[in-house]
């Protein structure tokens, strides 16, 4: 369990670090700009919203733990 937690923590830190690096290379590069461009695609927007909603469903309404 600790290994899995550490792995996810490293991924979260990596997201922040890449954001910082990108901002240093160009002032106008932001995560919001990234999401704005990605989510102009209706197909991708639907996928992201479905994933977002399912996370809420999974942790609040559905079965959470397997096994």
């Amino acid at each position: 369990m600790i290994a899995s937690g550490l792995y996810f923590a490293v991924c979260a830190v990596a997201l922040l670090v890449t954001d910082r690096i990108a901002r240093r290379s160009a002032d106008e590069v932001t995560i919001t700009d990234l999401f704005d461009r990605v989510l102009t695609s209706r197909t991708i927007r639907l996928a992201v919203l479905v994933c977002w909603w399912w996370l809420g469903w999974h942790f609040l309404a559905g079965q959470t733990v397997d096994g």
């Binding site: 890449t18 990108a22 160009a26 590069v29 990234l34 990605v38």
Partner: peptide, 18 residues
């Protein structure tokens, strides 16, 4: 823009790894 494209690829790789 190229910098945003690089950020997108980096984020994609991290999300895929996770």
């Amino acid at each position: 823009p190229p910098a945003l494209r690089r950020l997108a690829w980096a984020w994609a790789a991290i999300w895929i790894a996770g």
